[in-house]
Amino acid sequence: MCNIGKDSPFRDEVKVSLGQLAAEPGEAVVTSWYFSEGDSVPGGADLLEVVTDKASFDVAAPCAGRLTKIMATIGTKIKHSDVVAIICPFQEAGPDRGECR
């Protein structure tokens, strides 16, 4: 998906899920996306908002890169292990281009 070639600025794709967050058990609902497919995303920037039964919280981009695919649109119910987005990380480190965490 990242179309990695020797001249590509991207490394292997990074799958974003809620599994990085310890949160309320059960399903969550995607309520907002702060970026669109194709956007450049700074590492640590809020990517999307999800809501569980008693909590709303933002999910941060695990690294800087290009948001290549949104897998869960607004209103979609997701489990914590579901992949909600794919990010192709930028090759070079730099301002807002930190390593994936």
Binding site: D46, D53, K54, A55, S56, D58, A60
Partner: peptide, 19 residues
């Protein structure tokens, strides 16, 4: 979720977490 007295609810939770 919440806090109860018998089967009646006396307290309600609803949080938001940003960064």
């Amino acid at each position: 979720r919440g806090v109860w007295v018998g089967m009646k609810k006396i307290a309600f939770t609803g949080v938001s977490v940003k960064r």
